[in-house]
Design a protein around this nucleic acid. Structure first.
Length: 560
RNA sequence: UGGGGUGUCGCCAAGUUGGUAAGGCAACGGGUUUUGAUCCCGUCAUUGCGCAGGUUCGAGUCCUGCCACCCCAGCCA
């Protein structure tokens, strides 16, 4: 990430930090943090936040802590902690320290007692429903709880007994004493400690009271010496509370919270709740299903860390609502793989060709470049044989001039090999084309036939040497561009054709494809060996993204 | 009807003190090409920056008033 090419274009947060550094604020230091709650997997929206927080710190010579915001043991687990760490590392970021909000539980407790002593916090004994009623509405002020004026001693006694486990869940709660009439709902005496007799994944059974986000986050930031605390816009209205807590406790480190709008990507859902639902209902193959916008899903699909980082740079950072098109995500991975993926040939929908005038059993070894522009990627040898497979899309019994592939009675070149001509179509009982009988021109290897023009070039795989492979082609999981905005139940919006499985044939060199290795299947797209299911005896490839397809446009426009 | 935000090309987005609308994606032309890929060239907000007024020699940038959309009423984060 240190390369200048990966620097962010100008954005308002960078401008703020730049100014702060220039002004000598915090002695010119920049310290950020990424604070995920371990209650789900990270997705592309988190990647935006990660790239920003880590990126800004790095750009200004600072560092970033990874801090698990683990204040709600009911929803969290170490499985998520581990998945999150794995994803961040894979993305290419190194945190300075791994922290947990739970590391600060003892200090947080002391601060709470301090607040009680100062008359700035009190124990409330209303039920959750009552508290809601007392809170008022957006347009009406709330009412003070009848317990709001308990004495400091009584509050302290009650709070200590809460900690000691003398009360059941929900019996009491610690609230900040701010202003029940505030137009900002978050300032109407927010709850900061609740009783929860549950085991915590980090602290075990040490605590039965747990601090809440608003109280915990600002103090954790302060304790870690964070200078710029970047978060999404939903916390904007919480900033006064963030500042209130730090001010009332007179913390000497007061980080600046800056909010930016979160990423909305077309044709997918981003909320952890919905993603979890998809996983739990078995609609997809786990958190790393290649159709998901999770980091693990994108990784399994074949996206590279560099492409995801590039995407995060290109979408920018603002406070405005955004609807990023899928085309941008596809564009960054194509750009990356265009240079880095070795080329191979693979056929998704095999159609057998028999080249009748090519001697049976004979092989012609072809020396083939692994990349058309990068010689350092070397070459490999491919055998041309009498029987080959091409894709069914590449053959038509009849077609107009715009169709640059194999047509009955005319010629086409088999990439890197000979020019062939389709002579006869053999059909099975149902009328389906079973194979195509062809002839080849032996004098066309590495040169064009004289006086004739071939329609084009198509890819192929030797029938004798090709390997069977399962090839998974993905389309968006949803049929509408913004499933979150749709009133219909999301089940109705699921694309039934989001996964298409092909039983294809790939060239023999793919036998040794390593997991997660990416290739360009010429004329088809970029593919990645599936990290879960692929093995030398059972090859499975995921299509990362297709090649840009000009032909599809022509076809759609009625050109052929 | 309270509070907090946001509105610049189809999408994303630059636009530091007002000075005469970057860039990327997409799209559309054309060239190269044994990948209809890549690459290259060109077009793509002609008083237009949510709308309406105002200040100014001059406003996307300042002022006023509207409009639209988003967020907030968890003992979630």
């Amino acid at each position: 990430m240190s390369s200048t090419e990966e620097k962010y274009p100008n954005n308002f947060i960078r401008n703020i930090i730049e100014q702060d550094v220039a002004d000598g604020k915090n002695e010119g230091a920049v310290m950020t943090r990424f604070p995920p709650e371990p209650n789900g997997y990270l997705h592309i929206g988190h990647a935006k936040a990660i790239c920003l927080s880590f990126g800004m710190a790095e750009e200004f010579g600072g560092e970033t802590n990874l801090r698990f915001d683990d204040t709600n043991p009911l929803k969290e687990s170490v499985e998520y902690v581990n998945a999150i760490k794995r994803d961040i590392e894979w993305l290419g970021f190194k945190w300075k320290e791994e922290r947990y909000a739970s590391d600060y539980f003892p200090q947080l407790y002391e601060f709470a007692e301090q607040l009680i002593k100062d008359g700035k916090a009190y124990v409330d004994s209303l039920t959750a429903d009552e508290i809601r009623e007392y809170r008022g509405t957006l347009t009406e002020p709330g009412k003070n709880s009848p317990h709001r004026d308990r004495s400091i001693d009584e509050n302290m006694d009650l709070f200590r007994r809460m900690k000691a486990g003398e009360f059941a869940d929900g019996e009491h709660i610690l609230r900040l004493k701010i202003d029940m009439a505030s137009p900002n709902m978050n300032m109407r005496d927010p709850a900061i400690y609740r009783i929860r007799h549950v085991e915590h994944h980090q602290t075990g059974n040490e605590w039965c009271i747990y601090p809440m986000y608003d109280y915990t986050h600002c103090l954790s930031d302060s304790l870690e010496g964070i200078t710029h605390s970047l978060c999404d816009l939903s916390f904007e209205a919480h900033r006064p509370l963030y500042d209130w807590v730090l001010d009332e406790l007179a913390m000497n480190c007061h980080p600046q919270q800056i909010e930016f709008s979160r990423l909305n990507l077309q044709f997918t859902v981003m909320s952890k709740r919905k993603l979890r639902q998809l996983v739990e209902e078995g609609i997809i193959d786990g958190w790393d299903d290649p159709r998901l916008p999770t980091i693990s899903g994108l990784r399994r699909r074949g996206y590279t860390p560099a492409a995801i980082r590039d995407f995060c740079r290109r979408i920018g950072v603002t406070k405005s609502d955004n609807n990023v098109e899928l085309a941008l995500l596809q564009s960054v991975i194509r750009e990356d793989l265009e240079d880095s993926a070795p080329r191979v040939m693979g056929v998704l929908k095999p159609l057998k060709l028999v080249i009748e005038n090519f001697p049976e059993g004979e092989k012609v070894a072809l020396d083939v470049a692994n990349h058309p522009k990068d010689e350092t990627m070397g070459t490999r040898s491919l055998n041309f044989t009498r029987e080959v497979y091409i894709d069914r899309e590449d053959f038509r019994e009849e077609a107009n001039k715009k169709y640059k592939r194999l047509v009955l009675g005319s010629e086409v070149r088999l990439r890197y090999g000979f020019v062939i001509k389709a002579e006869e179509v053999i059909k099975d009982a149902s009328g389906e084309i079973a194979e195509v009988r062809c002839s080849y021109d032996p004098d066309t290897l590495g040169k064009n036939p004289e006086g004739r023009k071939v329609r084009g070039v198509i890819h192929w795989v030797s029938a004798e040497e090709g390997l069977p492979a399962e090839i998974r082609v993905y389309e968006p999981l949803f049929t509408v561009d913004f499933p979150d905005a749709d009133e219909r139940d999301y089940h109705e919006l699921i694309n039934p054709e989001s996964l298409e499985v092909h039983h294809g044939i790939v060239e023999p060199s793919l036998k040794d494809a390593t997991l997660e290795q990416r290739f360009q299947f010429e004329r088809e797209g970029y593919f990645c060996a599936d990290s879960k299911d692929s093995s030398p005896d059972n090859l499975v490839f995921n299509r990362v993204v297709g090649l840009r397809d000009t032909w599809a446009k022509i076809e759609k426009a009625g050109g052929a």
